[in-house]
Design a binder for these strands. Structure first.
Length: 491
RNA sequence: GGUCUCUUGACCGAGUGGCUAGGUGCCGGUCUGCAAAACCGUUUACUCCAGUUCGAAUCUGGAAGAGACCUCCA
């Protein structure tokens, strides 16, 4: 069996895969950058949520006591130019004639509804940026005291050059030097307040018409984007925690800025392991809000986007994502989704079949080895596609036993049942969607119909039996005949 | 322009030196009144060029193509 020592993770900070050793034995602190709540969640958000859900589940499965924190960014995240734009949430609020908090809360709820449907476990703490203004101001004060930040026109900026020279190189996470950054910084408007174009805002003075603003020693204003994670991560997980995660697009500048702020203010690297999920692409390009090429989760569930051939249920989407490794880009396509849907259905049927298997004196295959291989795979930097490949291997054996072509002992069957359920339910988070509230009624009706159809078949009245089968098909009920009798299932 | 990554069969997608990944699809077979399902079998691979090696999809060098980051982004 696997244990905690088997877990390896790819650490962006080091650029290698390494053994996972938590700071405190048996306990893990994990902070994941959540969404900016000014729009509906799309497939990209789902990938991040599912990736870290798997990581959370694997850690729990290995016996760790995990505190999982994921924030909602509801303030401080600017549109367009990084430090000189409008607040995204506020802009949306003005457009919709709503309070910023109203917009933020609406999309928070939408996000949770979607991630719940995708069977992502909720984090233990979901802090919001606007609820932690005091903590953020404290970080800015610390940086001012240390001379790593400077005030300009009521705003406060982080002095990247000074930090880079005196404290620690800037850009250690993205593996770039300040020279690279300097050469390639673009000329953006409104930078005359800053010493250097690559300095980033810690506090911004609010324009007159700005709604979201707070008192601070420098101005009536709002915190810079990178600050919230530093303040909230430290508050809920301590000076240094185990895992800091998010999408790959956050590596630079967001996470590098966080590191600089944290090291500058407190002297601590905020996290030991930095994990990043890759992007969802569509027609070869990154799916993103600003590219306007995204498909929202609601559209996926309903099949309402023009690019969708059909609706996809949340488990199909989850399974589709798990069939690729989290550090690879994953291209959206109907064909791939449909393939995932069919594969998943096959897997779930095999799972349901285990309890009905006939027991023998010996097993014709090594259940323990396949289960072990599957578990080892997910411990190797969360390699879910390999784990799933092993599950399909089991699937094949289960079907063969069911067909009488292979054998399984009572002990192996129990072991299989227990571990297959644990893998699907606890680790992969794949639940059977057929169990809805009205199955009781459907079951009663179907028992009756199946009984009548069996009578018809016994009387060789195939016209009636085919009529029943054909009429139920469009309703999503599929009937299959075999030697042992007919079965039905919801498709 | 700078930094980095990728290029696998009809499609998706694993795989850091030798052993069939896996899924979906196609085709054939078993089963079946028919169909479906299931099972078995089969098919199409590693962008190109050169090198290292007994042996490379996997390592090295070069070429071509694609993408990501450098600006908000999961």
């Amino acid at each position: 069996m696997i244990n905690k020592k088997n877990l390896t993770v790819y650490n962006t900070l080091k650029g290698i895969k390494e053994e996972f050793i938590p700071i405190k034995e048996d306990r893990v602190g994990m902070y994941v950058c959540g969404p900016t709540v000014y729009g509906e969640a799309h497939l990209g958000h789902a990938r991040s949520a599912i990736t870290f859900d798997i990581i959370y589940r694997v850690l729990r499965f290995l016996g760790y006591n995990v505190r999982y924190v994921r924030n909602f960014t509801d303030v401080g995240h600017l549109v367009a130019d990084a430090d000189d734009g409008d607040d995204k949430v506020e802009k949306k609020a003005q457009a919709e004639n709503k309070e910023p908090q109203e917009v933020a809360q609406y999309y928070e709820m939408m996000y949770l509804k979607s991630t719940d449907a995708l069977n992502c476990l909720r984090p233990n703490i979901m802090p919001i940026a606007s609820g932690h203004i005091i903590e953020q101001i404290d970080v800015v004060k610390k940086l001012m005291d240390k001379g790593l930040a400077y005030e300009s026109e009521g705003s406060v900026y982080f002095d990247v050059e000074k930090y880079n020279k005196e404290i620690k190189p800037y850009g250690i996470l993205s593996h770039r030097t300040l020279e690279d950054t300097m050469e390639n910084s673009r000329e953006l408007s409104g930078q005359q307040e800053k010493k250097n174009p690559f300095d980033f805002a810690l506090w911004k003075k609010a324009p007159k018409e700005h709604i979201m603003k707070w008192e601070s020693p420098w101005s009536l204003g709002f915190p810079g984007w990178h600050l919230e994670c530093t303040a909230m991560g430290r508050k809920y997980l301590g000076a240094e925690f185990d895992i800091h995660g998010g999408g790959m697009d956050l590596v630079f500048p967001h996470h590098d800025c966080e590191i600089a702020q944290s090291v500058g203010a407190f002297g601590d690297m905020p996290a030991k392991y930095w994990l990043h999920n890759n992007m969802i692409t569509i027609e070869g390009k990154k799916m993103g809000k600003s590219y306007n090429n995204f498909i929202t989760l609601t559209e996926m569930f309903n099949g309402t986007h023009p690019l969708l051939k059909q609706a996809y249920n949340p488990m199909t989407i989850r399974f589709f994502m798990l069939m690729a490794h989290y550090r690879s880009t994953l291209d959206f396509s109907n064909d791939a989704l449909i393939a995932a849907e069919k594969g998943l259905a096959r897997l779930m049927e095999a799972k349901a079949k285990v309890s009905t298997l006939k027991e023998s004196n010996e097993s014709s295959f090594d259940v323990h080895k396949i289960i072990d291989d599957a578990l080892m795979a997910v411990c190797d930097d969360f390699n879910t596609p390999i784990m799933i490949a092993h599950l399909f291997d089991l699937c094949k054996h289960i079907n063969s036993v069911s067909d009488g072509k292979e054998n399984i002992t009572k002990e192996d069957k129990e072991y299989l049942q227990q571990h297959l359920n644990a893998i699907l339910d606890d680790i992969l988070g794949i639940k059977d969607e057929k169990n809805s509230n009205d199955t009781g009624v459907i079951e009663g009706l179907m028992n009756l119909i199946m009984d009548m159809r069996a009578n018809a078949r016994n009387n060789k009245d195939y016209a009636t039996s085919d009529k029943i089968r054909d009429a139920l098909k469009p309703l999503g009920i599929e009937i299959k005949d075999s030697k042992e009798g007919a079965t039905w299932r919801l498709v």
